[in-house]
Simulated scan of single mutants.
Amino acid sequence: MILGIDPGNEKVKVYGGVLGNLSFPSDLGEWRELRLTNRLTPNDMVWEYEGRRGFAGTLAQAESEWGGTVKGTTKAHDDGKMRVLLGIHRIIPEYQGGNLTVRIVTCQPICQHTSIEKEKIINMLIGSHDLTINGIRKVFRIQEVRVAAEGAAVGLFQPVQGLLRVLDIGSATVNGATIKDMRYGDRESFTEPMGLATAMTVDPKMVARRIQAIASGKRWYRNDLIRLVGGGAVPMADAIREHFPKAYILSPYGLLPEFANAVALHEIGRAIYGQTS
């Protein structure tokens, strides 16, 4: 079972091929006894894991006083771990015959896509996990973990020859990746450690102006072919095209562009692990 998981700072996105796709808010918060319980939606999550329990998703947003998301340029932290585990639990089927085994590919912002940070992510995820969400217990083992660079992974989805740029506009970071003849170009790639949910004000034209300034310093030019992905792809598209007219929104398999990383990660997993689903 191969999963592509993008544990974003705003939403967790999971793609599992025949298992389908899902997303939910990344918020985590403290547990408390609720005096009245509304009918829970799938994104209202009460979780129990390793002797701890808490709220996640829309329930954390509504009922946790100290809820929220840990934002930043790395996902090598406990919030990042829980986002991935919640995503796995939500998408895998219930199984009574023993532990389910999964192989995953997840992602990290380009600026922190280092061997040290990747190793932290791998070490915190690999192994067996016993997680209960809303009273449903699932035990699964993460057999293998690979960590790809956000945005760059999307450049390997539906390959094109020549030069391709990817702009992954997220809630806490903007990743710009360069792919030349299917080879990642680190010198012309970047991470802006600010996104649409972390800036004090969000004026699309000014955000696009800032992105253009950073990108031009990395030798991006006006007529470069650019894939726009992430949660900010749609609201930012017109402003980005004022600077890069050939920018287009990628909606893999008809999904929202925010799923682009997760889909690409799944495709990478299929290639690495040698499976077809």
Rank of each mutant, 00 (worst) to 15 (best):
R183C: 07
I92D: 03
M206S: 10
C107L: 06
C111F: 03
S171L: 03
C111R: 12
T178W: 07
I214L: 13
I121Q: 04
Y184H: 13
A148H: 01
I92S: 01
G155K: 10
V84K: 00
I88C: 01
L167T: 01
S189T: 01
S115H: 11
T178Q: 13
E144M: 10
H89I: 01
T114L: 12
I116H: 14
R210D: 11
P109I: 05
I136W: 06
S189A: 10
V102H: 04
D130P: 03
H113T: 09
N134S: 05
V105F: 01
V207Q: 07
H113N: 15
T114M: 12
N134K: 07
A213E: 10
T201H: 11
T198R: 14
E192M: 14
R187A: 15
F157A: 08
V207M: 05
I133W: 04
L163K: 12
P159W: 08
T191S: 07
N134T: 01
D186I: 15
E150L: 07
D203F: 13
M206Q: 12
K138A: 03
G217W: 09
Q161P: 09
K205N: 12
K75H: 08
I142M: 09
R146F: 09
M124V: 01
T106M: 04
I169K: 04
R103V: 15
V147G: 04
P193S: 02
Q158S: 06
K81S: 06
G87W: 01
Q158N: 11
S128A: 15
G127F: 02
F140N: 06
R209P: 03
D79L: 07
M194W: 10
G151D: 01
T101I: 08
L163Y: 04
D79T: 07
A152K: 02
L196P: 00
Q112A: 13
L156T: 13
R165F: 08
K205H: 09
V202Y: 00
Q158P: 08
K118C: 13
M194D: 11
M124H: 06
L164F: 05
